[in-house]
Design a binder for these strands. Structure first.
Length: 485
RNA sequence: GCGGAGUUAGUUUAGUCUGGUAUAACGUCAGCUUCCCAAGCUGAAGGCCGCGGGUUCAAAUCCCGCACUCCGCACCA
C-alpha cells in the first residue's frame, strides 16, 4: 500500500499524527504516537531487545537527552555536524558552500574549514549562484544541534543529535562495574534531536526522533576471532556495493571480502534476522556499502541497511565501524582512561555501531503489512501477532440474552495478560473489520453455545477462519499464538 | 531554504472563479433489528472552513502575511 494509505490509517486508527495540531504555530517535524502506535512501538522494541540485546548479551542503558558542550566538542559534532551554507542575495536559494565550490571550480575545501576560506574561494573564482547567477552572501555555519540554556545563567548544552554519545561517555564505568569483557555491546533506546532544514514525510524525517543504538566495543586485532559467527554464517545478506547487488551468506561475504571481517558480518547477520521477524519484506532490503564521500566523518567502513517502500529506498539502520574515533576523542578531552584489559593485553577498544531509526522502521512495517483484501472488502494490517497493538478482540455476537455479561467476564479474566479489546456495538462483521485494520490477529466471539458449554470461537485475521474452543484453554492458546519467536 | 500545488467534520470531500457563516459519503454514538463477516430502519453528536490581518453592511469565498502538508530541487553529519 502507498504512503497516503498508511497516512490515512495512521490518522484514523491512532498510530501517529502531527504534534500540537490544534495550534497554528506548531512546528514541522514533530509527530506524536497514538495508542496504536505506542503499542506497535513497544512491541517492536521488545523484539529488538530479544533479538539483539539479549541474544548477544549486551548491556542496555538510558542516558540523558541533554548533554554538556564538552561531549560534543569531543565527539566532533560542534565542528563537523555543522554545514557551511551560502545563500544567494538575489534568489535566496541556499547551498552547501563546499559542494557548490567543488562543482563549479573543482577546488576541494573540507567542510570543517574556516569560513573565510569559502568566501575567498567564491570571490577568487567568481562563483555565482547556479540558479540565477546572483552573488552569494558570506558563508555561514548551520549547526543541526539544538542548543539549550541550563539554569539561570543559561549555560550552554545541547540536545543530543544521536543517542550513542552516552554510551561512549559511560563506557569506562560500565566496563568496570559490569565486569565487562571484549567484545561488549552496549545498547540504548531514546530520543535524538536534529534541526533538519526541511522535515518531510511524517515519520521519515523528524526533528525529534527515536533511535535504538548499539555500540559494540572490540579488540581491533581480533575481528576474525568470533565463535558466535557460526550461528549466522549461513544467514543470507543482500549487499549493494558500487557494482552489482549480490546475495550471499555471511560466510561467503567474509570470504569474498565484501564484508571486511567476521565481526562486522556477525552483527549484519543478526540484524537481518531481527528484521525478518518484524514482518517487513526482507527481499526488498539491502545493505548498501557506502563510498568514501557518503560516509559519516567518524566512519571507517559503513553499511546502510535500506528497505524499498512505495516512496523509494529508506535508510533504516546505519552500521558504522567507528574505530577508536570516539573513545580516543573523549579520552583526550576528559583525561579519563578508556583502555581496558583484554586477557593480558591493554587495548583501546574499537567500536562498531548499529544505529537504528525506530520511526522509519515502524513506518516500513506498517506499509509492508497493510493490504487491501478486495475479495472480502476489507483493509487488513497483517502484523506479526507479537507486534500487534491489540492481541485479541473480545466480542459478543449479540448483546442480549446474557451474552454481553459473559463476554465482559472473559475480558476481565484476560485483560491484564493480553492486549485485549472489548466491543459489543454494531454488527459482528463491522467489529471484525475494525480489528483487521489495527492488526489484531485474533478475535474471540461469545455466542449462545457459550452459555451452554463454555466454548467460544476464535477467528484468525488473515484467513478469516474460525475454530471453536473451550474458554478454559483461551489463555494458554493466546499465549502460544502471541508469543515472541 | 527555493519553486509548484494544497489546507473545509475522525477520514475523504462539494462549495471559492461569480462574497450572504457550509455539502455529501464513509466513520462514530444511542435505540430497534440481527445467531458470525462493513446489511437494514430510526435518531443524534461532530465544523472558530489552517492562523493572523485587510477590504466590505457581510468573507470558507477577494487581497496581504505567516504556518503546516504534499511534490520537485537542495539538504540528510
Amino acid at each position: 500500500m502507498k504512503y497516503e494509505d498508511v497516512m490515512k490509517l495512521a490518522l484514523e486508527r491512532g498510530f501517529y499524527f502531527p504534534s500540537c495540531e490544534i495550534y497554528a504555530d506548531a512546528q514541522a517535524g514533530f509527530w506524536e504516537y497514538g495508542p496504536s502506535g505506542v503499542g506497535l512501538k513497544n512491541k517492536f522494541l521488545e523484539l529488538w531487545r530479544r533479538e539483539l540485546v539479549r541474544r548477544d548479551g549486551m548491556l542496555e542503558i538510558d542516558g540523558s537527552q541533554i548533554m554538556s558542550e564538552s561531549v560534543f566538542e569531543a565527539s566532533g559534532h560542534l565542528g563537523n555536524f555543522t554545514d557551511p551554507i551560502i545563500k544567494c542575495t538575489n534568489c535566496k536559494a541556499t547551498f552547501r558552500a563546499d559542494r557548490t565550490i567543488a562543482e563549479i571550480s573543482n577546488i576541494e575545501i573540507p567542510e570543517s574549514a574556516e569560513l573565510i576560506e569559502f568566501d575567498n574561494a567564491i570571490k577568487g573564482n567568481n562563483i555565482k549562484c547556479p540558479k540565477c547567477k546572483g552573488n552569494f552572501e558570506n558563508t555561514k555555519k548551520f549547526n543541526m544541534m539544538f542548543k539549550v540554556g541550563i539554569g539561570p545563567e543559561e549555560e550552554t548544552a545541547y540536545l543530543r543529535p544521536e543517542t550513542c554519545q552516552s554510551i561512549f561517555v559511560d563506557f569506562p564505568r560500565l566496563f568496570k562495574i559490569m565486569r565487562g569483557k571484549l567484545p561488549l555491546g552496549i545498547a540504548q533506546i531514546g530520543k535524538s534531536f536534529r534541526n533538519e532544514i526541511s522535515p518531510r514525510q511524517s515519520l521519515l524525517r523528524l526533528r525529534e526522533f527515536y533511535q535504538a543504538e548499539i555500540e559494540v566495543f572490540c579488540n581491533p586485532k581480533k575481528l576474525n576471532e568470533m565463535e558466535k559467527f557460526l550461528q549466522i554464517q549461513n544467514t543470507i545478506l543482500r549487499i549493494q556495493t558500487d557494482d552489482e547487488p549480490v546475495t550471499l551468506t555471511c560466510k561467503e561475504a567474509v570470504e569474498s571480502g565484501v564484508i571486511p571481517n567476521k565481526f562486522v558480518a556477525y552483527y549484519l547477520g543478526i540484524l537481518t534476522e531481527f528484521y525478518e521477524k518484524t514482518g517487513v519484506d526482507i527481499k526488498k532490503s539491502r545493505f548498501r556499502k557506502l563510498g568514501e564521500k557518503e560516509k559519516a566523518f567518524y566512519a571507517e567502513v559503513a553499511f546502510d541497511f535500506e528497505i524499498e517502500t512505495t516512496i523509494g529506498w529508506l535508510e533504516l539502520v546505519a552500521c558504522n565501524y567507528r574505530s577508536d574515533y570516539d573513545l580516543s576523542s573523549h579520552a583526550t578531552k576528559s583525561k579519563e582512561k578508556f583502555e581496558v584489559m583484554d586477557n593480558d593485553e591493554k587495548v583501546l577498544p574499537h567500536v562498531f555501531e548499529i544505529s537504528m531509526g525506530i520511526d522509519r522502521s515502524l513506518y516500513t512495517i506498517l506499509e509492508h503489512s497493510l493490504r487491501e483484501d478486495k475479495e472480502n472488502e476489507r483493509t487488513v494490517l497483517s502484523l506479526k501477532p507479537y507486534l500487534s497493538p491489540i492481541h485479541v478482540g473480545i466480542l459478543s455476537l449479540v448483546k442480549k440474552d446474557g451474552l454481553k455479561e459473559k463476554t465482559d467476564e472473559i475480558y476481565f479474566q484476560i485483560k491484564r495478560k493480553f492486549d485485549a479489546f472489548l466491543d459489543h456495538s454494531g454488527a459482528i462483521g463491522r467489529r471484525y473489520r475494525r480489528l483487521d485494520e489495527i492488526g489484531s490477529p485474533f478475535a474471540i466471539t461469545v455466542d449462545h453455545q457459550t452459555l451452554e458449554d463454555d466454548t467460544i470461537t476464535i477467528r484468525m485475521r488473515d484467513s478469516m477462519e474460525q475454530k471453536r474452543m473451550k474458554i478454559s484453554e483461551l489463555s494458554s492458546i493466546l499465549s502460544e499464538y502471541t508469543a515472541f519467536p
